[in-house]
């Protein structure tokens, strides 16, 4: 009761990285709250996952292994998760802000009447004072996220309803193994106890999951383009530089929305979070949502026409000028100087 629970996403034979990242965050929240960390896995063919999940410091591992739970569909997962949460009464539930988490989270929150905050960039524990009602709350989950076009950062709390729910994008939190030998208490959940006939009305006819060819998250150099790049053709300059120096190409949401780059290259709150040793921002102004996805870069170079672009404040080096004539010369001087 009153523990922190992470819904662990099982896809194509393995637990997704975002779930391990959330277990790590969940472990630290549970330590602060003095409660236990629970993990919940729903799927089919789940044997042998115990050790992999346990080592993130999980105290209790709930596994529901049932053919009807894989591949993921909304209603069966909702039925089992809400049925279980009604019994185990977690105070906090965390999920990945993935295709699955963003489909399941709101369904669960509506069913349990609990508050849910999407795409959090930070989670903390703190107090809250409801001045109108004259009430004070301790140990609430602060759900922190940029809001409203990236102009502000909001801290959201759920004072009265439980569980407090939040989704977080992959890469926002860091995963960290607590101990290779740590063993969680394994609790097998009988899905049949919660599933009803009417939960099975959606059928998957065909499914194609491609493994991503882009490895932005783990690239040590990222060259990212914004709206200021101006066109899809101009993005080729970024690819040429990336090819020359061994980098991956990312993009801001504005560039993706304008069709200059593919969605899977989007960096920021609603995209990927990167922590490279070098981040070259090309024609990116630097809204908070974008900064949220790259602020841990060790070094930032900003190439921008606009000397007042907000991202310049984060940059170690600012080059003022046009990409079209700067990038080709960067490539040329790199080839000339590298051994």
């Amino acid at each position: 009761m009153n523990n922190v629970c992470v819904y662990c996403e099982f896809e194509e034979g393995s637990i997704q990285d975002v779930s391990f990242e959330l277990l790590t965050k969940g472990r630290s929240l549970a330590n602060q709250l003095g409660c236990k960390l629970e993990a919940l896995v729903l799927g089919s063919g789940l044997d042998g996952l115990e050790k992999e999940i346990s080592r993130y410091g999980v105290d209790m591992l709930y596994i529901a292994d049932d053919k009807r739970l894989y591949p993921y569909t909304t209603l069966p997962h909702t039925a089992v998760a809400t049925g279980l949460f009604r019994e185990t009464q977690p105070q906090i539930v965390l999920m990945g802000a993935t295709s699955i988490g963003r489909d399941l989270g709101p369904r669960i929150s509506s069913s349990l009447g609990s508050g849910l905050t999407a795409d959090c960039t930070n989670l903390e524990i703190g107090e809250y004072e409801d001045k109108k009602a004259g009430k004070r709350y301790d140990n609430l989950l602060y759900q922190i996220r940029p809001a409203f076009g990236g102009n502000i950062v909001a801290t959201i709390v759920n004072p009265d309803n439980r569980p407090q729910m939040a989704t977080v994008r992959e890469g926002v939190m860091k995963k960290e193994i607590v101990s290779e030998t740590h063993q969680a208490e394994l609790i097998r959940v009988d899905a049949g106890k919660y599933l009803r006939e009417e939960d099975l009305v959606v059928r998957i006819l065909e499914r194609q999951i491609e493994s991503s060819k882009i490895n932005l998250k783990n690239s040590s150099i990222v060259i990212a383009g914004g709206y200021g790049v101006g066109s899809r053709e101009n993005f080729n300059l970024l690819f040429e530089l990336a090819h020359a120096i061994g980098a991956e190409v990312g993009a801001s949401r504005a560039a993706v929305d304008a069709g200059y780059a593919d969605k899977e290259r989007q960096i920021g709150q609603t995209g990927i979070t990167v922590r490279p040793k070098l981040y070259i921002a090309c024609g990116i102004s630097g809204q908070i949502q974008h900064i949220a996805g790259m602020q841990d870069a060790a070094m930032v170079i900003s190439i921008n026409n606009d000397p007042a672009a907000p991202i310049n404040k984060l940059a170690d080096y600012v080059i003022q000028g046009n990409l079209e004539n700067i990038i080709p010369r960067m490539i040329r001087y790199y080839r000339k100087n590298v051994k």
Binding site: Y128, Q143, A154, N158, I288, P310
Partner: peptide, 12 residues
């Protein structure tokens, strides 16, 4: 159920 506790302008 969700309340906005605080909004901040972000200063880099």
């Amino acid at each position: 159920p969700t309340k906005v506790r605080q909004v901040e302008n972000i200063v880099f």
